[in-house]
């Protein structure tokens, strides 16, 4: 591949389409989830996946691992899981001469793609071991710090049904996930296709398309995609609009949201939007790119009010209403203190 940026963009957008085709051999439908997961991997973020059992969460991660030629690891979180079970531990070995020595046995976290299944079933202590690795891409065990291999990606799952005996992730920890994606129950046609596929074999069929190094290069290339100041401010306004305590909060926020999203949300929005633009073969970010990731970025970062919950409003409905309210002010100018450099590369 030529080092020329144009060639890189064209290469990656073509490869991305191919990756999706490969994954579609194993995962029927769920295009939003596939797009979001791939985007998060390229961006270097992590994903919290919510879905009922059997919708293909594990299969998705396996398929992605195959298509990206990345090492895959699965951790089933249970209440008795210990941090060492995740990170690894030192064991004492005796050699042939009887001499004892310590050897670090890496845990399942030492992989490129980690599927942390039912993360909310593990104790907070065990959760924090994983979350630390997610944040810093390193593990401290046995008195030593181990750097995790890049790219490193965690796809954590939560079962929305079985909430008894679970340890809900605190908001600060939820904020470390770039997206929260929801795998819905497949439609009848999709279910039919799933059955047909899995009747032959349960193994994933996706072939490798690109490698880990290409993924890192895609990440760097996406950073060069320019974003208009107005578009950046649009992302800022969306996140700011989730805070009811601010005077600029729209009515939807004041009526439905208790706590707003963190500044990390804006970073996630802009990074994801750049990747989307690049994979779309465009050389600039659009408002549409921002809006496409508003729900995945915000749904796990905001808390609804009790009134909204009692009236059975969903977070996605509230986010959609918020986008509508903020979207009509799309052409408003940035605040007077903002940098007016139209070519933004945060």
């Amino acid at each position: 591949m030529d080092n020329n940026i144009n060639d890189r963009i064209k290469f990656f957008s073509g490869r991305f389409a191919e990756i999706k085709r490969e994954i579609s051999k194993d995962i029927i439908g769920q295009t939003d989830v596939v797009d979001g997961t791939l985007t998060a991997i390229i961006a270097g973020g992590n994903v919290l996946l919510e879905g009922v059992p059997g919708v293909g969460k594990t299969r998705l991660v396996r398929s992605i691992g195959r298509s990206l030629n990345l090492q895959f690891s699965r951790i089933q979180f249970t209440p008795d899981l210990m941090p060492a079970d995740v990170t690894g531990t030192n064991i004492i070995e005796k050699d042939d001469s009887g001499k004892s020595s310590q050897r670090f046995v890496p845990g399942p976290i030492f992989a490129n793609i980690i599927l942390a299944d039912e993360i909310n079933r593990a104790t907070p202590k065990t959760q924090s071991a994983l979350l630390e690795a997610m944040q810093e891409h390193r593990v401290t065990a046995g008195g030593k710090t181990w750097v995790l291999m890049e790219p490193f990606f965690v796809l954590a799952t939560q079962n929305p049904i079985e909430q008894d005996g679970t340890y809900t992730l605190p908001e600060a920890q939820m904020d470390r996930f770039m997206f929260k994606l929801i795998m819905t129950f497949p439609s009848q046609e999709e279910l039919r296709d799933i059955v047909l596929i899995t009747q032959d074999t349960n193994e994933e069929r996706a072939n490798q398309v690109i490698g880990g190094s290409d993924l890192l290069q895609m990440r760097e290339t996406a950073k060069e995609i320019p974003i208009l100041d107005d578009v950046l401010m649009y992302a800022v306004r969306i996140v700011t609009a989730t805070h009811p305590e601010l005077p600029t909060a729209p009515e939807t926020t004041k009526n439905n949201i208790r706590f707003g999203a963190s500044p990390r949300s804006v970073q996630a929005l802009v990074t994801a939007a750049r990747i989307r633009a690049m994979l779309d073969g465009r050389y600039n970010v659009s408002y549409e790119d921002i809006e496409a990731f508003a729900a995945p970025v915000l749904r796990h970062r905001i808390k609804l009010t009790y009134d909204a919950i009692m009236e059975k409003r969903t977070i996605d409905q509230v986010i959609a209403a918020l986008i509508s309210e903020v979207g009509i002010r799309r052409f408003s100018k940035p605040s007077s203190g903002a940098d007016r450099n139209p070519f933004r590369r945060p």
Binding site: E224, P226, L228, R282, N284
Partner: peptide, 22 residues
């Protein structure tokens, strides 16, 4: 046009390769 025109005007005068591509 997905903000292509606005970005083009904003990048006017930029010597970078990406600006030319855009």
């Amino acid at each position: 046009l997905k903000e292509r025109t606005s970005t083009m005007l904003a990048l006017a005068g930029s010597p970078t390769e990406i600006a030319a591509l855009q």
